[in-house]
Amino acid sequence: MIVQLLISSLVTGSIYALIALAMAIIYKASEIPNFAQGEMAMVSTYITFVLLSTFGFPFLTALVLTLTFAFLLGILFEFLLIRRAKEPNLLGFIIITLGFQLLLFGLAGWKWGSDQRTFTLPFSESEVVVRTSSFVLTEHNLASLIIAMVIMVILYLILNHTKLGLAMRACQQNVGAAMFNGIPANRILGITFGISSIVGAIAGILVAPITTLDPTMMWDPLVKGFAAAVLGSMKSLPGVVIGGLLLGLIENLFGFYVSLEFKSIVAFGVIMLILFIKPSGLFAKHYIRKV
């Protein structure tokens, strides 16, 4: 049983980690907690659904189109709303992201209605890959793990081994200095939003088959992802991934050994606990500034 628990912890954990990563990339770059992340992912998931079921595209084509849409959605969000804010503060940014969240939620409800739809992927939750006496590994489990891993590796490579990544990290540390080194900071932030939106969309596509597809589908995962990010420290990407996996584990163990009904409360409990003990997160790097 413990192996089965570990597997489901890893799967939910890596999905949380993806959402947490999406939020952390933006937070690191701009200190904006993007609460619209979930709804952006939800809309992207709907796009995949429409492309698959209404237009009958093959899955890969639909995926590529969806990710392109997600990228543009992120860029447009930054360009049309975030960038327009004049001398903004944190509160202003939170209001903007919450407003955008409501806007997307409303649009999705109007366009697709609030009925719950089933969303099927080529890798299904009911097909079993490995079955032993102690655990079952479904196709969806395996695919989620692999996809999450691949995304993390790609993100790592982009950030650490490309010119774009270098520019992104420079902007994260000191926007002013990045600008007078010739980096177009606004454009880099826009691309950051785009990449983050792609990561979120992938999380959405992985979440939809295990829950259902409806406009509220990302509410729960977003809170969990946010908790994971806080747990691992919003400022450290590896920390965020570990935070996601940890939260998945804590939640599943709690659900099995303590109470299934109160499983969802765990994330909230974790946020509170972290705020009491180490507000900057478990893996925060404290860089001491020299004068």
């Binding site: 270098l166 520019a167 990290r169 990045a178 007078f180």
Partner: peptide, 24 residues
């Protein structure tokens, strides 16, 4: 531009700092 108070990118390596300088 070399600003007052240096403003190097503290969490990038020296080499990466120089490469940021060559961004354009």
């Amino acid at each position: 531009y070399v600003p007052e108070g240096r403003e190097v990118f503290e969490e990038l390596t020296v080499k990466e700092n120089l490469l940021v300088g060559a961004y354009i």
